[in-house]
Write a protein that binds this DNA or RNA. Structure first.
Length: 909
RNA sequence: GGGCGGUUAGCUCAGCUGGUAGAGCAGGUGCUUUACACGCAUCAGGUCGGCGGUUCGAACCCGUCACCGCCCACCA
């Protein structure tokens, strides 16, 4: 006998082990079945399961479990991402606790530490994903730094380099001074910051008593100023264009130039130009051909000597070597903020600070390190994303890859059509080291191995020459971009690729459309010649109550593991599926999870009831051959539910699949069918009992089967405990495919009528405050017998109603019961008279019926307004008009009945 | 500045092709009805953000305004 409640903690690990032992998650490359592929977005090796993962992986698991059960050869490719910056930060932080810096260890030893860390604590998340019940093909798990994937990365890098799509360039990058690395545009977050706007006086060279005022939010960068720009049309400064100013504190002579960048409306209208420390100034510097002067080191401290670079106007490249120029010793080694303070003080002391305004502006910050980004002039590797983007744009335009919901395509297009060069090098150690080697003269040799590079170098130099490998590693997203094919063995093996590429669907949140989806599209199209997946399903982001992204640093995380401990994985999964239709945000409430835990318990108890009544051992059912109306009805309802669930899963409308199951299981099967059939099971019509038990078993089995992808543990446990299948676990059983035509409209209408009759009777009881135990000798009048399937079998209805409602229904045909003590219930053409004797308050009953009559009258008027409107009858489709006419007739009849009922109570209608 | 999404019951949200506004939770009332109190029954609760338009008919389509949120760009 089943326990009273489902205890997930006792079931989940046992069933999960069972599935894994039976290789139930494995794809089968040998089979003839049509493949179905989902590439798991590889979680960070540092990650722990958060709500976003839970949603993302539940969606994928539901899809893959459904595909598997519809006979597809399903591959859910799992894996993990090495997460360059995140992982290196974790390990560095641990080392820092022991007072060790990564440079103390050196590259090799540090990387050993990272691998050690990965072996010990990396991959906690894959255990947590198991906890969630996910069913990827675990033995095929890949890591972005597996040797096979490393080879793919090297090959892609080398090929793109040879095709001119990867190149090295000196330009301004987003530099994170805390992490000491370049980062891409996407890793920069704009943060609104309260700052100051300093108005500084720059004296003219020829007239030292006269000055031009520039406004800046970053006074410390003045050390690298190489011009002052004003607008050509600006009357205030027109006469100054072409004159020189002497840069205070530094003494450098710099020109006042006319440039469109200067906006007369902003600041003082004159803007200092620091081409090596500001992206706009960089462009101005190129236009005005002024020097680019770097004044900061990698930690954003002021240099002792500025590095001056000149741009060659012909080649567009910088001078390879910097010319050094001394900077004031007072600032050397100061952090940029300390330097700012001191520089402002020193300028003020000289009377060169005109004014200081409060100023709110947005400042770029690194998304990992959290410090302000420094635009910094360095040599980095770039990928020509523009060229790679063109086929990726076309593929979506042509519908070879579709976004669901489709509106995300616009986001994708906007970004792709304005795509910038992708900075792919990072000054980190953990990651794929760039396969580039330098000769003594700086000549670069890009090759898949050191040996190959050496061969190229000797050819180039004419003799064997020592090479030094580029120290940088690649952006983590570079290897992620190859994930759809690198995990399938590219470039070595082609078999898995041929079978499982391209994937069917990619499931992800919109926050990584740019980071990942776009780049997979670009790389896959370039190297595989085909899209990486046919569909991109974009789900909502799970946020906190304020709409903030959940993050550990904000401390606003709801932990899915805690929810699973408390309510079970199935409840969490079902909750997430029920909410999957929402817009962009999911605000998760624990109450909701609790509600679906209750749903799990409800189903559990329905199964327990079936077990107690030996329904689980009943004979198999041919659903087309059922005869009793109540059984025909539930079979039809189940068939409709199955169709809704299948449709929901196929259309990525998970909430509808979940909703249909919830509604049917609780609201139809438990609330009505099981109650209807209790008297049957207690009766002595052996054939009817047998059919009802078989039907009950059949419906329960189908509920479990349809619910299985959403609630794999509970359904599997019941399936196996009650022996509802044969040897196969439920997760490998065929998906229910029900024949058309199981719906029986007559039975449906009949049962619907009974439901309404009983509900109405209950309402009367409740509103009239009839004591619960009070039995009522009710009478049913005016039944249109020919319409009723059960016209000759009233005992069934009586039996049910007597049991459920403590009514004793007299056979039809007896005179209408009237009088002061009789409440009346109308259901379609029939009237149920409930003699309540002293229990009833006549005035209250009249009021109740009058309220119904009023509503009926109002509805009738509203329908009449429509029908009396010639525009409606002439323009609306005939079926809509007809529908309204039918409604009118029904409403009119109901009104008459209500009036009659009120009259029978002795009150004027 | 450009774009996207949202505004429906007290709360969280569904509502697909325009045709009688829904669910869960919370709330009120009543139930030791032998599957389930993680339950059963029942009730109440709505100007579908405002205004205008299209339409026979608008929560839904169009315009506009307000507020909330997100993305991109810029920010002297």
């Amino acid at each position: 006998m089943l326990d009273k409640t489902f205890r997930p903690e006792e079931v989940e690990s046992r069933l999960y082990a069972l599935w894994e032992n039976q290789h139930a998650f494995a794809c089968n490359p040998e089979s003839n079945a049509k493949p179905y592929t989902i590439m798991m977005p590889p979680p960070n090796v540092t990650g722990s399961l958060h709500m976003g993962h839970a949603l993302n992986h539940t969606v994928q698991d539901v899809l893959i479990r459904h595909a598997r059960r519809t006979g597809r050869d399903a591959l859910w490719q799992p894996g993990m991402d090495h997460a360059g910056i995140a992982t290196q930060m974790v390990v560095e932080r641990q080392l820092a606790e022991q007072g060790i810096g990564r440079r103390d260890l050196g590259r090799e030893a540090f990387l050993d530490k990272v691998w050690e860390w990965k072996a010990e604590s990396g991959g906690a998340i894959s255990r947590q994903l198991r906890r969630l019940g996910t069913s990827p093909d675990w033995p095929r798990e890949r890591f972005t730094m597996d040797e096979g994937l490393n080879a793919a990365v090297r090959k892609v890098f080398v090929e793109l380099y040879r095709q001119g799509l990867i190149y090295r360039d000196k330009r301004l990058v987003n530099w994170d001074p805390k992490l000491g690395t370049a980062i891409s545009d996407l890793e920069v977050e704009q943060t609104e910051t309260k700052g100051k706007l300093w108005h500084l006086r720059y004296p003219l060279k020829d007239e030292p008593s006269r000055w031009i005022v520039v406004a800046t939010t970053r006074p410390e960068t003045m050390l690298g100023d190489t011009a002052v720009a004003v607008h050509a049309e600006d009357e205030r400064y027109r006469d100054l264009i072409g004159k020189m100013v002497v840069l205070p504190l530094v003494g450098r002579e710099i020109p006042i130039v006319a440039d469109e960048h200067a906006d007369p409306e902003q600041g003082s209208g004159a803007v200092k130009i620091t081409p090596a420390h500001d992206f706009n100034d960089y462009e101005v510097g190129k236009r005005q051909r002024v020097p680019f002067i770097n004044v900061l080191d990698a930690q954003a401290r002021v240099l002792a000597e500025a590095q001056v670079f000149y741009l060659d106007p012909d080649t567009g490249h910088f001078s390879p070597e910097a010319t050094l120029e001394p900077l004031p010793a007072a600032y050397a080694g100061l952090d940029r903020y300390a330097a700012r303070k001191k520089i402002v003080e020193d300028l003020d002391a000289k009377g060169l600070v005109e004014k200081i305004d409060d100023h709110v502006h947005t400042v770029p910050h690194g998304d990992r390190g959290g410090v302000a980004i420094e635009p910094w002039l360095t040599d980095q590797w770039y990928c020509d994303a523009y060229t790679l983007a063109q086929p990726a744009i076309k593929a979506v335009e042509e519908g070879r890859t579709k976004f669901v919901p489709q509106n995300w395509e616009n986001v994708y297009f906007d970004w792709m059509r304005n795509i910038q060069p992708w900075c792919i090098s990072r000054q980190l150690w953990w990651g794929h080291q760039i396969p580039a080697w330098y000769g003594p003269d700086g000549e670069v040799f890009v090759a898949e191995s050191e040996e190959d590079a050496a061969v190229e170098a000797s050819a180039y130099y004419g003799t064997a020459t020592a090479l030094v490998r580029d120290e940088d590693v690649l952006d983590t997203w570079f290897s992620s971009a190859l994930w759809p094919f690198s995990t399938l063995g590219w470039p070595e093996g082609q078999d898995m690729l041929a079978r499982y590429y391209p994937g069917d669907v990619l499931v992800t949140g919109f926050d990584i459309i740019f980071f990942w989806v776009a780049r997979m599209m670009m790389m896959s199209l370039h190297f595989m010649g085909d899209v990486p997946f046919r569909t991109v399903y974009i789900h909502a982001l799970v946020r906190d109550a304020k709409g903030q992204k959940m993050s550990k640093s904000k401390g606003n995380v709801i932990d899915p593991l805690e929810l699973m401990d408390k309510y079970g994985s199935d409840a969490l999964r079902f909750t997430l599926m029920s909410m999957a239709a929402q817009g962009r945000d999911i605000k998760l409430s624990e109450q909701r999870v609790e509600g679906y835990r209750n749903f799990a318990t409800k189903l559990w108890n329905a199964a327990r009831y079936c077990e107690m009544n030996d329904c689980h051992t009943a004979a198999p059912l041919d659903p087309a051959a059922v005869s009793a109306p109540v059984n025909r009805w539930i079979v039809g309802e189940l068939a409709a539910t199955a169709a809704a669930v299948t449709r929901g899963l196929e259309d990525y409308r998970f909430n509808e699949a979940a909703g249909a199951l919830y509604q049917f299981t609780w609201g139809t099967f438990c609330d009505w069918y099981l109650e209807f059939t209790k008297p049957i099971l207690a009766g002595d019509d052996a054939a009817l009992v047998a059919e009802t038990k078989s039907t009950t078993r059949w419906v329960l089995s189908h509920i479990l089967s349809l619910l299985n992808p959403l609630m794999p543990f509970l359904t599997e446990e019941l399936w196996q405990t009650l022996s509802l299948g044969n040897e196969l676990p439920l997760m490998l059983e065929d998906w229910p495919e029900l024949a058309d035509g199981l719906a029986d409209p007559a039975a449906q209408e009949e049962l619907d009528w009974v439901v309404r009759l009983i509900s109405s009777a209950r309402t009367v009881r409740a509103e009239m405050n009839v004591p619960p135990g009070h039995r009522i000798a009710a009478r049913l009048h005016d039944l249109a017998e020919p319409r009723r399937l059960w016209a000759g079998r009233w005992e069934e209805v009586i039996c049910r109603m007597a049991r459920l409602e403590r009514l004793e229904v007299a056979p039809a045909g007896e005179p209408v019961a009237t009088g002061q003590g009789v409440a009346q219930v109308l259901v379609d053409e029939a009237t149920l008279a409930l003699p309540l004797a002293d229990a009833i308050d006549v005035a209250a009953e009249v009021a109740r019926l009058s309220k119904s009559a009023d509503k009926s009258l109002k509805d009738l008027e509203s329908i009449d307004r429509k029908l009396n409107n010639p525009a409606f009858t002439s323009k609306a489709p005939p079926e809509v008009v007809e529908e309204q006419q039918e409604r009118r007739a029904a409403e009119l009849a109901r009104l008459e009945q209500l009036k009659a009922a009120i009259q029978r109570l002795g009150a004027p209608a």
